[in-house]
C-alpha cells in the first residue's frame, strides 16, 4: 500500500544503562590505583621481571609446561574415552574395571600419585617383561624408566583419564538413543556406531568441560616441580632460590601462565564453534565478533537469535 520502504522498521529510544557506566568508572578507578601502586612500589622490581621474562631458563620451563600439558592431556583424553566406553559396555568385566579405575584415581590426590610414581623404584626396583610366574625376557632398572618426565606423565595423565572418563560418559549418554538405534538398524557394528555416530555428537558435550580441563591441567603441571621436572614453576624456583627475587619471579611465572591460559580460552572458543555445526541453523559469532559486540553493548544489546535456535543449541545436550 505505502511506498515507504522502511515502513516496518521500528524507531524507538533504546534502553539506557546508566549503572553500567558507573560500574565501569569504579572499576577503571580501582585498576588505576592498582597500576599506580604496582609501578611505584619498588618491591615489584619490574626491571627484574623484564630481565627474566624471556630468559632461556624460563623459556625452557614454559616449553616443558606446554609439552607436559599436551602429552598428559592427550593421554588423559584417549584413556578417558576408552574408559567411558568400557564403563558403558554391556560386558560386566569391562565396566567394573573402568569403575574401579575411576574410583581409585579420583579418590587419591594427584600430588600423592605424582610422588608415588616418582618413587616407584622403592616398591618395584626393576620392571621386566616375561611370562607371568615364568621366565623373564627383558628387565630394566625402574629408576631409569621412571624419569621425572615419565613420572609427571603417568601421574597427570592417569589421573586426568579418570576425570575425562566421567566427562566423556556424560557426553555419550547425552546422545539420543534413537541415534544408536538408527545406526544399528543400518547394520553398523557397536564400535562403528560409537566412533562414527555417537562420539562425534558427544563431542559437543565433551569439549567445553575438556577445555576447562586443559586449562586446569596447565596449572596443575606446576605440581610436578616436586618430582624435579624442570617445568615453568621449577625453573622459576631454581632462579629465585639463587637470587632471592621471589616475588618478581613468581610474577614472571604468572604472566606466562596467564598468557597460555588466555591462548587456550581462545582456542576453546573456536573448537566449540566448530562442533556446534549442524546443531544450530546459524553459526555462532567468531571470537572477535563477540568481543566487538561486548565492547559496544553499552549502546544496544546484540541481536538475540530466534528462540528456536537457542533451543536447538541445547536440544542435543539433554
Amino acid at each position: 500500500m505505502t511506498d515507504h520502504k522502511h515502513a516496518d522498521a521500528i524507531k524507538a529510544v533504546p534502553v539506557r544503562h546508566p549503572w553500567r557506566w558507573v560500574a565501569t568508572a569504579v572499576i577503571v578507578l580501582l585498576l588505576a590505583m592498582f597500576i599506580n601502586m604496582a609501578v611505584t612500589n619498588p618491591n615489584f622490581e619490574w626491571n627484574v621481571i623484564g630481565e627474566y621474562l624471556f630468559s632461556s631458563k624460563i623459556l625452557e620451563g614454559v616449553w616443558a609446561t606446554v609439552w607436559i600439558t599436551i602429552v598428559a592431556m592427550l593421554a588423559g583424553i584417549v584413556l578417558g574415552v576408552v574408559l567411558s566406553v568400557m564403563r558403558l559396555s554391556p560386558n560386566p568385566v569391562l565396566s567394573n574395571v573402568a569403575s574401579g579405575y575411576i574410583w581409585f584415581f579420583r579418590g587419591t590426590p594427584v600430588l600423592v600419585q605424582l610422588i608415588f610414581w616418582f618413587n616407584l623404584a622403592v616398591l618395584v626396583p626393576d620392571i621386566s617383561l616375561g611370562i607371568p610366574f615364568g621366565p623373564t625376557f627383558v628387565s630394566w632398572d625402574t629408576n631409569s624408566v621412571i624419569t621425572p618426565f615419565v613420572a609427571a606423565l603417568l601421574g597427570l595423565g592417569l589421573n586426568e583419564a579418570a576425570y575425562m572418563a566421567e566427562i566423556s560418559r556424560a557426553g555419550i549418554q547425552s546422545v539420543d538413543e534413537g541415534q544408536v538405534e538408527a545406526s544399528s538398524a543400518l547394520g553398523m557394528s557397536r564400535t562403528k556406531t560409537m566412533r562414527r555416530i555417537v562420539l562425534p555428537q558427544a563431542m559437543r558435550v565433551i569439549i567445553p568441560p575438556t577445555g576447562n580441563e586443559v586449562i586446569s591441567m596447565l596449572k596443575t603441571t606446576s605440581l610436578v616441580s616436586v618430582v624435579a621436572m624442570p617445568e615453568l614453576l621449577y625453573q622459576t624456583q631454581q632462579i629465585y632460590a639463587r637470587t632471592y627475587q621471589t616475588i618478581p619471579l613468581l610474577i614472571v611465572a604468572s604472566i606466562w601462565y596467564l598468557f597460555l591460559t588466555s591462548l587456550l580460552t581462545i582456542g576453546q572458543f573456536y573448537i566449540e564453534r566448530h562442533y556446534g555445526k549442524g546443531s544450530t541453523s546459524t553459526q555462532a559469532p567468531t571470537f572477535l565478533q563477540r568481543l566487538r559486540r561486548n565492547v559496544f553493548r553499552f549502546h544496544s544489546p546484540p541481536p538475540t537469535p530466534p528462540s528456536s535456535t537457542l533451543l536447538d543449541a541445547h536440544g542435543g545436550v539433554r
Partner: peptide, 9 residues
C-alpha cells in the same frame, strides 16, 4: 523411525 533419527552432524 517415527522421529527420523537422522545423524545431525
Amino acid at each position: 523411525f517415527q522421529r527420523f533419527n537422522l545423524f545431525p552432524h
